[in-house]
Design a protein around this nucleic acid. Structure first.
Lengths: 230, 230
DNA sequence: GATATTTGTCACGAATATGTCATATTAAGG
DNA sequence: CCTTAATATGACATATTCGTGACAAATATC
């Protein structure tokens, strides 16, 4: 599965190098010479990964990263930062704002590819055992409990898995087949429409705490869990 | 449950990086620039986990790890070692002396956090000999007695161990095989459904003090002891 | 060695969850 | 508006999971 990788780097030679590498790794590089260009490009395509140089003219990488991480739409996009060798200070700052990994310049193509691969492998946020809370709805995997506003939400196994998936991948539209893959498991053969029914059951159950509108229908595409009230 | 994590690393920049990461993961870093300092700090606080650099001035990491693992007081503390990239020799030696995991430098923050979490999760709440009381139900490991509301609850050996485990790991779901592992011991070959039967016997016995609902069924997953009513 | 207790397994009914369909409702485009 | 496609909903047959009582084997107790 080829991924769109946004490369934000002002030095053309290095950018060329990066793009070449990415192409060879079977992915699709999107080049931006500055943060401003990057922001424009992102209006068209939301990339799967961002390679971000830390030293940029104008708005610097740090600021850009912080901005990305504070926006719900983009906060889940992994960022790999490029730092000068031994620039530990940058690394620290980068981690502060939530960069996911870093590569020191001069980088070896091999290392870069390895890290890209590693990060992309985790593209779907791993379902951890940490409790998740969105909009007052709380899901705790270890106790297998869902609560919202002091009320206990009673869910069947499938609905629980479904909600769990939605909460770990919030703000993102999932098609029915994606949901079948991720929630049901890829070996089953069930109708797409079945998802609808489970969505309804989930919404129904969520009504006890007033969260029935949390899962939204995106006509023609699928479903999405979002905190923003449309 | 925040954990105290001792970071033994002589390079200040990297130490800073590690400490920041640990803080962001919700834990409490304790910094030591050398093994000697670490040993002093450990007189005050016994950490829950040790991040140990392998290349240290003075006494090296290997020696320190071996020392920790040979002392009864500290042998159970998990150790994650930091090795230089591809230094397979160190990895082998490290695992030999009982390190629990390793991370190669330069490490990705995400990977580090994942490993920290994994190691800490393995730290199962130890079954102590202290009496436990939940919801008016009291279990005393030393006298092997269970009482609830003045009534004595009569339990068979297996049911006692089962209840003991549930009470030390309350509010979380345990699958049948987890229970078989933890309560029966991991070498036995018993049917999953046997757990059901023992759960019923336990519930039955707990009925004399009105605690029959303390252990709840989580359909499709397992069982859970919880004070909160469904 | 006789008796009581504990333990694992099974069979079967009850409770619950699941997938599918038929039909109602809703949104989008002309 | 009206048409059409997409989604929501209720109902239902089926499948799955759980609770329960019974029972025989193993173990402990006297």
């Amino acid at each position: 599965m080829p991924a769109n990788i946004l490369v934000v780097e002002d030095e053309p030679a290095i950018q060329e190098l990066l793009a070449l590498n990415i192409t060879q790794a079977g992915h699709n590089p999107i080049r931006a010479l500055s943060v401003e260009i990057a922001q424009n490009l992102m209006r068209e395509t939301i990339p799967d990964l961002i390679l971000l140089d830390w030293m940029l003219p104008g708005m610097n990488g740090l600021e850009f990263a912080r901005k990305l991480k504070s926006d719900n739409l983009t906060k889940t996009i992994p960022i790999i930062m490029l730092t000068a060798r031994g620039d530990e200070y940058d690394k620290v700052r980068g981690l502060e704002v939530g960069a996911d990994d870093y590569v020191t310049k001069p980088f070896s193509p091999r290392e870069l590819n390895a890290r890209i691969k590693a990060v992309l492998r985790r593209r779907a946020p791993q379902m951890t055992d940490d409790p998740i809370e969105i909009n007052g709805l709380r899901l705790d995997p270890t106790s297998h409990r869902v609560t919202g506003h002091q009320k206990i939400v009673d869910l069947g196994p499938t609905e629980f898995r479904l909600l769990h998936f939605f909460m770990t991948n919030a703000e993102r539209v999932h098609t029915r087949s994606q949901l079948l893959d991720k929630v049901w498991g890829d070996r089953v053969f069930v109708e797409d429409r079945t998802v609808d029914v489970h969505i309804r059951r989930l919404r129904n159950a969520l009504a006890v705490s007033g969260h029935q509108d949390l899962i939204q229908t995106v006509r023609g595409s699928g479903y999405r869990l979002s905190e923003q009230h449309t």
